[in-house]
Write a protein that binds this DNA or RNA. Structure first.
Lengths: 184, 184
DNA sequence: CGTCACATCTGCGGATTCCGTGACTCGGAA
DNA sequence: TTCCGAGTCACGGAATCCGCAGATGTGACG
């Protein structure tokens, strides 16, 4: 399986590093120095449990991390509300009908935002990152077939104002796919 | 957030459930099993439901897709067994302590497999794809800080036998992250 | 040093959900 | 026609979920 890159909710991740925000009053002082401070060891352990199985019962998780069922429930809810994690089904694009995928390296003239926003609006674009290096943007595209892929790249991406050039990397084989962060 | 590839996400929601399981080979990533073509429209609808909320009750899903609770239960179980999908927690690397990420384009001399396997063994490597284009492999790396990233790229990847050259694309900002296939 | 505010955890029922089981129906393939 | 996979319906006990008090702990403040 595989799939998109996970993430978090867009609202908070906008920039600066994102640590996700907490409600209003809670955080006492300044957030800048500890991105990791948001999640303590116990919550990390809970996340680990849910990375193994997103539907594991709260009681079982509690037993594993040393908390009561109710406490686990509260923490999970908070982690979800804060956007620290999400519990979802992930699929393998191939088995669901998307047989062509590609990574696109893009170079832009001027401001990247307009281009990034336009790409954001395309449903075939699964992933967008602004990078430092010989490409300004790297995007992952998931299509149904070659015609579809060609249309997206040639007709929709390369014609966007600001796009100077693109380079395609068609996926031949997905070798690894993980999604276990706090887990190590 | 972002990160691995996978999938789905949704607004918020939650719920739970779960089985647990362990080791490395969870359903999804390994075999060459091509269950292709095996997913009909109804199962797709079920997957869609679970992409919105991995813990949604079977009865609710049934109501949404027009099947009985029992039928949904059977299908979900089969989809999981077949490795068509997985229900897991996905997190935002940044909030869990990983502040440096990068995409690496790699060129190899000779057989790609040995190199891919070696990369596969590295825990910092989150994603590996064999591609057609000016790079033979593209891998996503998730690290704690710059030192960590440097060590991985310079000391561990570039020294692998067969690796001819690498090009790094350090992530400046994750702009989009999705994971909803059957969903469109 | 008390006290209030707030966050978190534990217990505890009641409502839901999960899940195996058995009976019957409905095409499609042999 | 018969066999078989897949669904539906119904059941009922076990397990899970979920809201709601107390109990506890800590930091801020007078």
């Amino acid at each position: 399986m595989h799939s998109g890159r996970v993430v978090s909710r867009s609202a908070d991740s906008s920039n600066g590093h994102g640590t996700s925000r907490v409600p209003a009053s809670a955080a006492g002082s300044d957030p800048s120095r500890r991105t990791s401070g948001t999640v303590d060891a116990v919550s990390l352990a809970i996340i680990e449990q849910l990375q193994e199985d997103g539907r594991r019962p709260y009681a079982a998780i509690g037993k594993a991390v040393g908390l009561s069922e109710a406490a686990v429930r509260q923490r999970v809810q908070k982690l979800l509300d804060q956007g620290v994690m999400q519990i979802v089904a992930v699929t393998d694009p191939l088995t669901v009908g998307f047989r062509r995928q590609a990574m696109l390296g893009i170079n832009v003239d001027g401001d990247l935002e307009p281009v990034a926003d336009a790409l954001d609006a395309m449903k075939e674009v699964e992933y967008i990152v602004i990078t430092a290096g010989s490409f300004d943007l790297m995007v992952e595209i998931v299509c149904e077939d070659d015609d579809h892929l060609l249309e997206v790249i040639n007709k929709r991406v390369r014609t966007l104002p600001g796009v100077r050039s693109t380079e395609s990397f068609v996926y031949l084989k997905l070798k690894k796919q993980t999604y276990m962060w706090g887990t190590r």
